[in-house]
Design a protein around this nucleic acid. Sequence first.
RNA 1: GGACGAUUAGCUCAGCUGGUUAGAGCGUUCGAUUCACAUUCGAAAGGUCCCCGGUUCGAAUCCGGGAUCGUCCACCA
Length: 902
Amino acid sequence: MLDKAYNPQAVEDRIYKMWEESGAFKPESCPADGEPFTISMPPPNATGQLHLGHAVMLALEDIFIRFARMQGKRTLWVPGTDHASIATESVVIRKIQKEEHIADPRKSLGREELLKRIRQFVESSRGTIRGQVRKMGASCDWSHERYTMDPALERSTYAVFKDMYDCGIIYRGHRMVNWDPKLQTTLSDDEVVYEEEKSPLYTFKYGPFEISTSRPETKFGDKYVVMHPDDKRYKKYKHGQTFDAEWINGPVRATVIKDSVIDMAFGTGVMTITPWHDHIDFEIAERHGLEKEQIIDESGKLLSIAGEFAGMKIEDARPLIVEKLAAKGLLVKTDPAYVHNVAISSRGGGLVEPQIKLQWFIDVNKEVVPFVVRQAHHDTAQGDTKLMSLKQIMHAVVHHGDITIIPDRFEKTYFHWIDNLRDWCISRQIWWGHRIPAWYKGDEVYVGVEPPKGNGWIQDSDTLDTWYGVSQWTWSTLIDPKAAADPSLSLADILKRSPDFQTFHPTSVMETGYDILFFWVARMILMTTYATGQIPFKTVYLHGLIRTRDGKKMSKSHPETMIDPLDMIAKYGADALRLSMIVGQSPGADSRLYEEKIAGYRNFINKLWNASRFVLLECEKAKIDLSQLRASSFELRELSLADRAILHASEVLVEDVTKGLALYHLSEVGDRLYTFVWDFYCDWYLELSKGTANHAVLVHVLRRILKLLHPYCPFITEELWASVKPKEAGMLIAEKWPVVKQEHKDPAAEKDLLILIGVIQAIRKLRTDQNVEPGKEISVTLVSGKHSALLESQESHIRRMGKVGSLTLLTKAKTMENVATAFLTDIEVHLSLEGLVDLEKEKASLIKEQEQLQKFASGIEAKLGNEQFLAKAPATLIDEQKGRLLETKDKIQKIEERLKQL
RNA sequence: GGACGAUUAGCUCAGCUGGUUAGAGCGUUCGAUUCACAUUCGAAAGGUCCCCGGUUCGAAUCCGGGAUCGUCCACCA
């Protein structure tokens, strides 16, 4: 027999082990003819702990997977980890600095030694992560576990690089990049965040002009003034005209440039440019063929062009430069309250300094990729191959509905991102990651999966952006490692010889946080459509961020705000944690989590446990072997009202849950199950069963609940299943999803039960209010009360139930539950109904309803009398209006009759 | 500057395509309880559905405008 309370710690690990050892997570355990259903688990960074973001991701994906598995689909969930180049390298470097007091581990240890240390660190992190994913109950196929630096994935990363290079999509060139002086590497545009900062805006005299800047330290090399061609104030200056100006370190010769990018309303409408350190300035310089000069070096110090300031850090030099210009009489004014955005590295937290550097880029605008827009419905014929740019492909597959994003408003965000997308800088000046497969000898460049033959080739020292490799995740994880190890095969051949890829790609759902829509989801679409010609996934489900009770972001810098999923699992169990993160969370929207919420769902889990315990005890009392009970063990005709009602409700539940899950309405479905179990099954049906239990129905409905709830709460449902399952059944994880039994549907029964519930509530109220002793005959009116509203006509319903006419209530019954029992088992019950009802209240509400209905009726009448309406509206609509009018008039009449009675 | 989202009970949130008296959980108050469960049961109090207009017989819901908060993108020389 079950314990009095559910103890997740004693159950979860054992159950997980049982699942894993049985092979239930593997697609081979699913029906061979099942429709494939695949999820690629977004790989956590191999840097250590799992947080709530991972927990919510695992919970959601596990629900999708378990639901699909129970529906008989051939289900594969691929787990894995990401080497996370920058993040991991900096974590390990910081660790070494702290633990071994080595100031610059890169310098002291050298490339090979540092990589060795990182590898060790990653190995242990991966072990930790595996354990934590299991704790959440994630039913992923561990035999398919992958790592972004597995040989097969490395191979595909290099192969795609070479392919893109040959195609002209990947190029190497001097371009403006985001340089992180602190981490000494480039960053992608998406890795830069902007923060508001107040810093003075200085206005200086520059020849005949006045220019403003918040960064005087970049202005040493400025020798162009730019203004709008339509600016009347500067009409007399011609494009290309030169003039001399006194500047920081003496006189300079400057040139006038006219460019319409200038905002005439800002400041004086004139600016000087620094093309080496500013995106916009770079573009202006490119447009007009202007010279570019580097002012700031890679560590954020001024170069020799700064003269006496050379070698100084920019923040130190700034005030001195202002001082010098002021001394020269060139400072016109200072606006100390100026607010602007500064670029910050989301990786290292330091300032980002734009620089021109020789880097590797992906061209997103070159129309050279042959692509078939498969489901193109409108503007492209089926199977028509077009040469498209990566941008166009990314746009097309979402636009044409090959990929659906949930919630759909993010599609707009996605398109907007594509519109603003610039070429993607993919080289990073760090060591940990996929090293760029390019080799140099003098001016020669060789790009290939394998190093070139011959001596004197030096490999590029940079590595690829982490997102480059992991953008292949949905399919590189499905590559057959043996095929990938064969150097004679092309990527296309490798894919052809990878059965998993052939069966399970494109994947079904990509579930991840909306915060990495750009970093990853968009880039997966780019990379996968390019490399395989397939979309990576059919549906994107974006979850929101989990925030604190106050709506703040949980952050490592404020440990008190953090909720550790493992702590919560230890305290409340994984099932409770899962529910607390799913119910009340809608896709794409942030939600708040706090301990009481989790405790609430722990209570629910325990409620389910005790309901099952009750069922088991009842069966034991009656000496019934419940493993023999089936839905065929009861005759529908012989069932009590409560039995018929719960059967009906459970059928409707199956419909709702199945439909809801298919539409990814997880929160709604979770709430529906919660309410059904607690309010209906436990609070009503089990109560009504006391004394007169129909064991077969009790067990049948409980089994349904366990099945429907299994995707949400896999542990407890599996544990209970062992006690209540039919003899021949196996584990719940492998059970078939319930199908609706139409013959069990009986809407009238549910309605009638609601009336009964109304009766019981009325009696209860009477007993409390009027302090009626057991054994005394009481008078109750049934008309009022919450549930009366559900009745068309109570009298007729009660008559239909055939039990209430001139009945006497036996208040001998000790509890109200027994009254109900008596009611159900044909013991004669007398209800005389005076005394409880508030006639005035009923009258008032009837009058109100009557007024409303009359208004409604007059509205329709007016419509039907309106010639314009009759001319425009279709005949069916007019009929419908007529029908509604009759119905309404009928209702009004009934109300009038009732009012007369009162 | 552009886009998106939110605003419903003290708190956290449901409320789908307009339709009976706007719901739940937590919290509060009152009461119950040997009989599955105090991780329980029953009940009560608590709401200008952010504001103003409009459409409609009828608006928390649809439309327009505004306010406040939040998020993303762009970016200011």
